[in-house]
């Protein structure tokens, strides 16, 4: 039982990061029906901008850990959101009315471009988040020692998701996003500025992805230029499991994926863990072809 609780907590932390990235995929998909393959690179960018602020510029040392962290959260989310906005302008907006596959290839191209740009700027070596911002202590959870940083990362992910949920469900802009996700044309007829909705989505999604990158850097202490590839693929999987386009679905899918991985590794095999995950994904989709919580779309006839 201790083993299970420990593994469950391991899975929740990873899952929280997956969920944050998955939100970016799912929000963009909901409104634009586009798989933003460059989203994983925005995650990497967040990690490297955090490295720039906290390690290269020594922000935490200069203004104290708490303020340094707060400043880097604001700066990283702002800069990555700006990058996401730029990405949408350059690579996706011109293709808004084209074939969907063209946008997919454009997204793949943008992903390759960003990944290599990060490599050229920061080099191909692994970089260490050497700044120790938090004491390396563990808290007791159900009799299991869980490192403080993991609890904080999970709490931060949960808080961000809650904020997003409130934003989507309790504000007028959130209402517009939901409307545009269901039917862009009808939303436009109702007087919703769909271009603005897309812009908002392309600010929130990247900001969350960038923050996830910062959190991954703080949690694992090691970043490199192609880290977004694997995380992006996993988060995309999570978004699909939850039902892409559905925001709650992405949260559930992310946590579920994290748990699947840790429990798969714990009870079956570490080497086959990712294969198990994909087999479960396929089984879920065979039973529920649009994921656990499908987006609400009327099937067009």
């Amino acid at each position: 039982m201790d083993f299970f609780i420990q593994q469950f907590c391991n899975g929740l932390t990873t899952g929280g990061i997956y969920a944050l990235i998955a939100l970016g995929y799912t929000m963009v998909y909901g409104v634009m029906k586009l798989i933003n393959f460059a989203h994983g690179e925005l995650f990497t960018l967040g990690a490297f901008l955090g490295y720039l602020l906290l390690v290269t510029l020594g922000l935490a040392g200069a203004v104290g850990p708490a303020l340094g962290l707060a400043l880097s959260i604001v700066t990283v989310s702002g800069l990555v959101a700006a990058a996401g906005h730029l990405l949408e302008r350059v690579a996706y907006r011109p293709l808004r009315n084209s074939d969907r596959l063209a946008a997919v290839v454009s997204a793949l191209g943008a992903s390759i471009f960003l990944q290599n740009a990060i490599m050229i700027v920061w080099g191909s070596q692994y970089r260490a988040y050497s700044a120790r911002l938090l004491p390396a202590v563990s808290l007791d959870v159900l009799g299991q020692p869980i490192p403080l940083i993991r609890i904080l990362v999970f709490a931060a992910a949960a808080a961000l998701m809650l904020l997003l949920w409130l934003f989507i469900n309790r504000t007028r802009t959130g209402l517009a996003i939901r409307a545009a996700a269901i039917d862009q044309g009808a939303a436009r007829l109702m007087g919703i500025d769909v271009s603005r909705v897309i812009a908002v989505v392309f600010v929130i999604g990247p900001a969350l992805g960038g923050l996830a990158g910062l959190m991954a850097g703080l949690l694992y202490g090691q970043i490199n230029f192609n880290m977004g590839q694997l995380y992006g693929l996993k988060a995309f999987t999570a978004a699909i499991i939850g039902g892409i386009g559905n925001i709650q679905g992405a949260m559930i899918g992310g946590l579920l994926l994290g748990l699947l991985e840790s429990l798969g590794a714990a009870y079956v095999s570490v080497a086959w863990k990712d294969a198990i995950t994909f087999v479960v994904l396929i089984m879920i989709l065979v039973v529920r072809p649009t994921g656990l919580l499908p987006e609400r779309v009327a099937e067009k006839l």
């Binding site: 593994q7 391991n10 899975g11 192609n226 694997l230 429990l263 590794a265 570490v270 080497a271 863990k273």
Partner: peptide, 16 residues
Amino acid sequence: DAITPGDRDYTATITK
């Protein structure tokens, strides 16, 4: 057993 390079989170493996 074998870990996957690039995963970053090896706590499940270490716990095991």
